[in-house]
Amino acid sequence: MTSALAFKDLTLGYDRLPAVQQLRADIAEGSLTAIVGPNGAGKSTLLKGVTGALAPLQGKVDLGSLERDDIAYLPQQSDIDRSFPLSVVDLVAMGLWREIGPFGWLGKKQRARVDAAIASVGLTGLESRPIGSLSGGQMQRALFARLLLQDAHLVLLDEPFTAIDARTMADLIEVVRSWHKEGRTVLAVLHDAETVRAHFPETLMLARELVAHGPTEQVMTAENQFRARQMCEACAGPPHVCGRDAA
């Protein structure tokens, strides 16, 4: 099993205050991994470290042969301006950036793929709707369609199922499973233990430091969860001791 990416004594943080400390872990290629941990455990920070948006304070993220544009990232609170005059098609078609870049033409073939991506997240018929008129769940579907088109080797999802309805969640989990079947590496920050146990074979539990990493049933134990909470509480003192809440 080769690894898609490796955290090598990785310390990440803001203003030199560490939010993730001395993390050492290998993420296997093609694995479907949930990142779990209490609030403020550094889960979102870790994903930002992988995208390169946040430079390590110490150690490094070894991306192996992966390039920056092999990575697709769905942030927790995407800063998309919902009042911006874009249609669903416009938003989803952004996923083709790697292929057509800033100047390329959106040809018939590409347009067909945009439509296919929209169909596979169940938004057919809403193509020309302005994004401002979409519900939270529909917007998340559209963002998943964009991820589909990005055709990335490594997919990073930050709390992708928060505040959406059950039906949408079930559909989007199917999308995640299809990525897994296609051999893509998926890392998802999640907080719902049920979802993790049901759909994610691997889990990485974080409480600023690594708590456990491996098959989900071995990691998601009551003992580990208790330990993670304690580690985070020990850190939740004054900010100059352990850094501000960076989840």
């Binding site: 942030p75 995407s78 800063d79 998309i80 301006d81 911006f84 950036w97």
Partner: peptide, 14 residues
Amino acid sequence: VLECADPQFLRSVS
């Protein structure tokens, strides 16, 4: 347009 609508995405792809 991307920089206006979704700067985070533009930074992640280019």
